[in-house]
């Protein structure tokens, strides 16, 4: 049994009157692919934001990659985000006037120093070796998402958080992206926590948890 890379105990998060996450206990093994499902407002994205250090819990303990996020100050949290996690969003958030390789180098810049050769290789790994100098507007949705994947993995995160990564993609592109994530995970051995509405997408994971109204209501192990 691999050690836990994510461990939450009684984590809660409210926004004013609305309790987005009720006390949640969750363990994720190192290298596991966890899918998070639930309908809108169930607390999926809140959970992802907490795991990625984008938000702070109101209560409970949240240990990610051996780091207790509650103990980190703003600088520590920023460093945690830079060095420990990669995030893929449904909206790509690519910088429109930069080329694909420059978008990836941007992530390197905020992490440490840019290295073009490494950024190019990352794009080659996601199958975009021929689209290095294209801007996001010149790429298809699937290709844009692959740039996002290259951007998310460029800094070798131990955890990849994906928020509806295929939400905007057609079926063919969805398959390509999921295959890619699979391959990369096998190579890099990072942990994936992926929020999705799509049962088929969720089934790529090893385990799926279901949230409802901020409560973990069910979990399923996938056959894969």
């Amino acid at each position: 049994m691999a050690e836990c890379i994510i461990e939450t105990r009684g984590v809660t998060r409210s926004y004013g009157e609305i309790c987005a996450l009720k006390p949640l206990d969750l363990q994720v093994r190192d290298g596991e692919w966890l899918a998070v499902m639930g309908h809108s407002g169930s607390g999926k994205s809140t959970l992802l934001n907490l795991l990625g250090g984008l938000d702070r819990p109101d209560g409970g303990s949240l240990v990610v990659g051996g780091v207790d996020l509650a103990t980190l100050g703003e600088d520590g949290l920023a460093r945690f985000r830079r060095e420990r996690v990669g995030i893929i969003f449904q909206q790509h958030h690519l910088i429109p006037h930069l080329s694909a390789v420059e978008n990836v180098m941007m992530a390197q810049y905020f992490h440490s120093v840019p290295d073009e050769a490494e950024a190019k290789v990352a794009l080659q790994r996601v199958g975009l070796g021929h689209r290095l100098r294209n801007r996001p507007g010149e790429l298809s949705g699937g290709e844009q998402q692959r740039v996002c994947i290259a951007r998310a993995i460029i800094n070798s995160p131990r955890i990849l958080l994906a928020d509806e990564p295929t939400g905007n993609l057609d079926h063919a592109s969805t398959v390509v992206v999921l295959e890619l994530l699979s391959e990369l995970r096998a190579e890099e051995r990072f942990t994936i926590v992926m929020v999705t509405h799509n049962q088929e997408v969720a089934s790529r994971g090893e385990r799926t948890i279901f949230l409802d109204d901020g409560i973990l209501v069910r979990e399923e192990l996938s056959g894969r």
């Binding site: 120093v113 840019p114 290295d115 073009e116 050769a117 490494e118 190019k120 290789v121």
Partner: peptide, 14 residues
């Protein structure tokens, strides 16, 4: 500058 060596490092990685 600091970009020196990027290609070399990447080559070694590969």
């Amino acid at each position: 500058g600091t970009k020196r060596g990027g290609l070399y490092h990447e080559l070694l990685d590969s």
